[in-house]
């Protein structure tokens, strides 16, 4: 699954495609409409759909577009920080920076403690070694 921004961009592209497809379909499937006093003409190269089908297509295409709009709204609502003001974002960044500094200090102290424990361990291993020599001498 792509990230929210990519999904949003893809959905907007789909809306543009749907607009183009809708206009193209309606522009190539309509029938001749005579003006007052004229007789209706026809052409073998034009294959129109009936008035009912055209009306259904218009409504169907409109519904699809609105559905896509709603999808975009949903994606926008899920974007992080969409309702956060820049001021609040800066405050959040400061907090995170302070937290980073605290964690760094904690890391340093823990590293020092780690060194101390290593030294203690080395001493005990050395002591154990000497005791082993004494105890297990034949």
């Amino acid at each position: 699954m792509a990230c929210r921004c990519t999904q949003l961009q893809d959905t907007i592209d789909e809306v543009a495609t749907q607009f183009y497809s809708s206009i193209h379909y309606l522009s190539s499937h309509h029938d001749f409409v005579p003006l007052p006093g004229q007789e209706k003409v026809s052409d073998s190269k034009v294959n129109p759909i009936s008035a009912e089908e055209l009306q259904f297509a218009q409504r169907d295409l409109a519904k699809d577009l609105v559905t896509k709009f709603m999808q975009i709204d949903t994606l926008i609502n899920q974007l992080p920080g969409i309702s956060t003001a820049p001021k609040h974002q800066l405050e959040k960044i400061k907090k995170l920076q302070n937290s980073i500094e605290e964690k760094q200090l904690e890391r340093k102290s823990l590293e020092s403690e780690n060194e101390d424990l290593k030294l203690q361990l080395a001493k005990r291993i050395e002591t154990f070694g000497r005791l082993s020599c004494v105890l297990f001498q034949p």
Partner: peptide, 26 residues
């Protein structure tokens, strides 16, 4: 000219109908 005029007239009606349907859905 009359034939092309009727064809364009049909196109106008189709797009106008789509505009109305689209407005109602929105």
């Amino acid at each position: 000219v009359q034939k092309d005029n009727q064809y364009v007239n049909g196109k106008l009606y189709a797009i106008e109908g789509f505009q109305k349907a689209f407005a109602e859905e929105i």
